[in-house]
Amino acid sequence: MKNMRIDLAMLAAVFLAVGLFTGCKPAETKSEQATKPTLAVSPAGETIYGEMGKWDNQNGDSIQLSSLKGKIPVLSMVFTRCTFACPRIVGDLKAIEQKIPRDKKDKVVFVLISFDSDRDHTAELQKFVQQNKLGKQWLVLHGDEESVRNLSMLLDVKYKKQANGDFTHSSSIALLDQNGGIVTQVEGLGADATPLIEGIKAL
């Protein structure tokens, strides 16, 4: 019973904390925070390609995110040793792949970015590509810690490295337009991908 009471007190603390800080904000952001937090969408189509960062792909080639200009990237953050959420994200992405209209097939690129800067080097990424039978429209990227952290901020992805080297993380899929603006995102495993597919059709 005592524990129960403490839990309630903590819940109250969370509401208080959220209340405190929304209290300092103008009204429009207040309502945004009061509802279920939404994931980042680029203001006025602002590109995330302005952010530099050091990336290399499953073939060991170093690339810049801006090289995706003109493509329609579908992005998610994962790590190759992940046994739970990430295989399901890959499954969700493959399901989206099946639903892309024919005229967009060459444009859409599936981009998986690894949280695991320390361990997910080229060989690991290549293994991941083989195991998951990822086709030529798929890119799996390794980046240094800073690049990964910056990208996670832009996409509103949360992650934490555990002491054993694995990651706890939120799962979301982002759709970018041809200029690297975030069009929409869906959060959660097995989430309804309709906004993404409709988004792809409209681009």
Binding site: A85, M153, Y159, T168, S170, G188
Partner: peptide
């Protein structure tokens, strides 16, 4: 953004 406090167990946004 490494603080992951889930709202409740029905959400499946974080790993196991």
């Amino acid at each position: 953004n490494s603080v992951i406090m889930n709202d409740d167990s029905r959400s499946n946004s974080v790993n196991q």
